[in-house]
Simulated scan of single mutants.
Amino acid sequence: MLRKIVNITKELNNYLYKDNCIHGDFLCLNNNRNNIKEITNYIDELECEGASVSESDLDDYIGKIINITIRVSNMKEYYDSFSSFLNKNKTTLTVDKFYIKEIDYFYDTGKDIDNQLISNYFKNIQLINILEEISDYQNKIGTELELFFYKVEKGLKLNVDYNYDDLKELNIGNLTELEEDFFNKPDKEERKQIFVNDLIGLLKDNNNYNELLKK
């Protein structure tokens, strides 16, 4: 269903996203009327020249401009902007597939990622997972996540927060090697402790998570 809605939005003129609804107009043709009929449960309104149109009557409107309102409030895979995507998926990906209209990108599980921003997002999620695994304590409410790290007489509370610009400028190395060090090496506990000590030292004057994305 997501793919069908995405395909329809690509045909819309005067696209507008407001109040969890997609608004726009399209030229009704033989090759798109069936697509409209297939998303009936998501359509709030169809109009032509100010008059209401039923999905079953679209055959009578071939060649005419139709105004459409599609409600996507119950479709958590559709995001109008990258910031709205991050608001719902900041510390973990909550869906198997998604579409972000702002960057015109459709992701599906197992698909090769050919967008640098999305690639950076997944790399960042990998880093968050590592930090969460080695932290001493986690406080998670919704999409908000705080991680706590301790060493003798010192500690660090890390609020996992970042934005679009942070991901665009992301500069972190090979995290797969870091995972190998922390979870598979014989001296993994020692490696974790050394990393935590360095982390606390690195962020002692600024405990903002996004600082890590620039290191």
Rank of each mutant, 00 (worst) to 15 (best):
D44M: 12
E133C: 08
G50I: 05
Y107N: 05
I103E: 03
F106S: 01
T91P: 13
Y42C: 15
S73F: 10
L58G: 00
F85I: 09
S56F: 03
Y61I: 00
G24K: 06
I36Y: 13
S52W: 05
G63M: 07
E47T: 09
E49K: 09
K101H: 12
L93D: 11
I125N: 04
G63I: 11
E47D: 11
N31C: 05
E77Q: 12
N41E: 10
E102W: 00
L131N: 04
N124L: 04
L46M: 09
L127P: 11
I130D: 10
K37S: 10
D44V: 14
N31Q: 12
V72T: 08
E102A: 14
Y99K: 06
Y61A: 01
I66F: 04
T40D: 09
E49R: 02
I128R: 02
I70E: 00
G24F: 04
N120F: 00
L127E: 09
M75R: 08
L131Q: 04
N35M: 05
G142E: 10
D59S: 13
R71A: 14
E132H: 06
D60T: 14
I118H: 08
D60Y: 08
I113V: 15
N115I: 02
N89W: 01
I100T: 07
I39F: 01
N74F: 14
V72Y: 12
K37G: 07
N32L: 01
Y137M: 13
D96N: 13
L131E: 13
T109L: 04
D96K: 12
G50H: 01
I134T: 05
K140E: 05
Y121C: 02
R71D: 14
N89G: 04
S81M: 07
E55L: 13
S135C: 02
I39L: 11
I103R: 02
F106H: 06
K101S: 09
Y121F: 07
S73R: 07
Q126A: 14
G24C: 03
I141G: 15
E102Y: 00
F26K: 08
H23M: 11
E45K: 14
L29M: 15
V53S: 03
G142H: 07
C48Y: 12
F26T: 00
I113M: 08
K111W: 04
Y42N: 12
L29P: 05
N74A: 14
